[in-house]
Amino acid sequence: MVMPLRKIAEDPCYQALVARRARFTWALSGVMLVVFFGYILVIAFNKELLARPIGDHSTTWGIPVGLGVILVAILLTGIYVRRAKRDFDPAARALVEKYTSE
């Protein structure tokens, strides 16, 4: 059975779902951009800060801060997946069921 894509696209529930998902993804993208560009700006304008050794060791602050950027990306991905499974996927499934059962 072919789904009536035009009907789904015109459905207010679908439009609300798309808007909610877009707001959420833009918010997460904004957080990631701030973290990433903050890290890049520190590298560009204050290399000495990240080049300082941690205590008496040879590892510099740049290593854990860089790993922190990666961990933030992983965390944000997990947050998105959790929200998608909890909110977005069930709403999309409900729309598909609504229009395939007609």
Rank of each mutant, 00 (worst) to 15 (best):
A16R: 11
V34R: 01
S101T: 10
E102N: 11
F36G: 05
K85H: 13
A73Q: 02
V96P: 00
A51R: 09
G38I: 06
F37I: 14
E102K: 13
V18F: 11
A16K: 12
R82V: 04
L49A: 15
G38D: 00
L28Y: 01
V81A: 06
L41I: 08
A84V: 03
E48V: 10
I70S: 15
M1A: 14
V81P: 02
A19K: 15
F24S: 03
R6T: 13
V96Q: 01
D11W: 05
L33F: 11
A84P: 05
L95V: 01
T100N: 07
P53M: 04
P53H: 08
W61G: 06
F36M: 11
V2E: 11
M32A: 14
I43C: 12
R21C: 07
E10P: 02
P12R: 10
L71K: 02
A94G: 08
I70W: 14
W61T: 00
Y39D: 08
P64T: 01
L50R: 00
L5I: 11
A91L: 15
P90T: 01
A51Y: 07
G55A: 02
T59V: 11
W61Y: 10
Q15F: 03
I74D: 00
P64S: 03
L41C: 13
N46G: 08
D56E: 04
T100R: 10
F37M: 08
A9M: 13
T59R: 07
M32I: 12
I79F: 04
P53I: 01
P12V: 08
A51M: 13
T77I: 10
A9I: 13
V69Q: 05
K98Q: 06
I43P: 05
A19S: 14
Y80N: 01
K85S: 09
Y39G: 05
L41N: 14
Y99D: 03
L75H: 10
W26P: 03
V81R: 12
A94Y: 00
I43K: 15
P4V: 12
I74E: 03
T100F: 06
